Simulated assay, not measured.
Amino acid sequence: MKDLHAVVTGGGSGIGAAIARQLRKAGARVTLMGRNVERLKATGLPYQPADVGDEASVRAAFTACGPVDILVNNAGQVETAKATATSLELWQRMLQVNLTGTFLCSREVLDGMAKRGFGRVINVASTAGLTGYAYVAAYCAAKHGVVGLTKALALEYAKKGVTVNAVCPGYTETDIIERSVQTLVAKTGRSADEAKAEFARSNPQGRLVQPDEVASTVLWLAGAGAVNGQSISVCGGEILR
């Protein structure tokens, strides 16, 4: 990774922060992007403020940070609601952050990568991009879109030294899970440990995935030139059921 410039969106915490650490340890020069400037500052890494769902913000951030060799589209958001209670605003938010954000950031770097004859785009999707889950219809639709976008871009740039792949984590021990645990506690009266165990049970290994396990898969894809257009599950076998 020496002399390669990597950008990680949503890199201030959780999976994004773990990815940034591993890329940095492997020798890459890392720039973080995200909306929470305080979290970005706390990492001690270079950063550019960016709202990935806003075209002007994305363009300004990538113009400021210069050529990119590795792009990790990690920024994402999940909200839960019964399908018939899903407002158009919620639907649009899920698409804007998870799918449109991935598209906008990728669009900023792909042609530059192609001109230099090297590039890696790695999209952090979800097992929700490979299967369905109740009460997250908008999120599932967005993440399925990310998987489809990954395949289309992989074919479009395959002969130009650029690969485009996705990683699809299952339930991972991050702030998102912590918020989901608190929601489950509030709605059901279960303890936090019982609520967390509910998420862990979906994994045949009986545990939550760790951010560094997702980051290791991203690091592998960054060095795997013959792997293209794939969506790699990091979920302990959850979607085999």
Score class of each variant (00 low, 15 high):
223 G>P: 10
154 A>M: 09
168 C>W: 00
78 V>M: 13
9 T>E: 04
164 V>N: 07
128 A>L: 02
107 R>L: 04
65 C>E: 02
120 R>A: 04
154 A>L: 08
213 E>Y: 13
217 T>L: 12
53 G>E: 00
130 L>D: 00
190 R>E: 12
185 V>N: 07
19 I>W: 04
154 A>G: 11
171 Y>I: 12
240 L>C: 12
213 E>P: 11
126 S>V: 00
120 R>S: 05
57 S>M: 03
171 Y>C: 11
204 P>D: 02
172 T>N: 09
225 G>E: 15
205 Q>Y: 12
121 V>I: 15
12 G>N: 01
213 E>V: 10
120 R>T: 02
140 C>H: 00
192 A>E: 15
240 L>R: 13
39 R>F: 01
21 R>P: 03
149 L>E: 02
235 C>R: 02
204 P>N: 06
140 C>N: 08
102 T>F: 05
223 G>S: 10
89 E>S: 15
148 G>W: 04
22 Q>C: 10
71 L>A: 03
136 V>L: 06
225 G>W: 06
35 R>G: 05
74 N>L: 11
182 Q>P: 00
11 G>S: 06
25 K>V: 13
153 L>T: 01
61 A>C: 05
206 G>K: 13
108 E>K: 09
234 V>Q: 06
132 G>S: 14
114 A>F: 10
15 I>Y: 05
